[in-house]
Amino acid sequence: MNWHKKTLYMSCALALFLAGSACSAQPQVTARPDGSIPVMDLSYAPDYKAVDEMAQSDVQVIHIAQVDDINSFNRNLKKPKGVHLPPAEDGLRDPQNEATHILAAPKPAFEGLPPTEFGNRVDWVKTLDDKKVRPRWEKEDPDAEPFVMDLDIVRPVKASVPDVVFPHRQHTEWLFCSNCHPAIFIPQKGANQINMSAILLGQKCGVCHGKVAFPITTKSCRKCHSKPKADDWKPPLSEVTLKNPWK
């Protein structure tokens, strides 16, 4: 073994040792001895139900990717390879099944509908407002009209993002009062604690948004967070900043 190979092996070992000690010195997540992560305490949200939407296989794929290909570009970015694929090519339906080939394809169905950059890439609210589609309100009566309520609810937000405006009109065009009240939202001012973690976990707005109604992406934040803060608004300082002895 010549000298430069030896140096290479030595430096590899040193790097591994340093990386290992760096990781063990600063545990970010306190895992239990058996390797599991403690379940989130939810006593502040008694109506919370565990979300089991996350497919186990996805989690495994991420771990393999992190180990196998650490230096690959954007290893954690999942990008769709195509949009509006016909049913037989969408990966969810079985092309071996003959009826799969009869099912409606989304691409021709979405032609001429107002586009967005997320979800089905169709702005369904605008589609309905523009009367591009005429979905029924009663299953057997094509002429039944919805019970629309035009009332905007403004929800102040602690963080620096714009405040949330919830528009009842767009929601009551599609849904009935009992769909949300009182099971998901108590119809009373200040009674509903909402945060983005809960929404991402499929609670509150996340019962529909992030699953079937427009999803939660950077491009859709401002659909809800739409009312700018007042000009004199400043982000509240955190406790550690206020008590910072070096400030």
Binding site: M40, V51, E53, M54, A55, D58, I62, N76, K78, P87, G91, L92, R93, D94, N97, A99, T100, L103, G119, N195, M196, S197, L200, L201, G202, G206, H209, G210, K211, V212, P215, I216, T217
Partner: peptide, 25 residues
């Protein structure tokens, strides 16, 4: 018409697209 063995889920849901589960508050 689904591929046999596919578990019950909503395709394309935000929960599925997250790189890691939502952070604890």
């Amino acid at each position: 018409s689904g591929v046999p063995g596919t578990p019950t889920h909503i395709h394309g849901s935000t929960a599925q697209t997250l790189v890691a589960p939502p952070h604890q508050p």
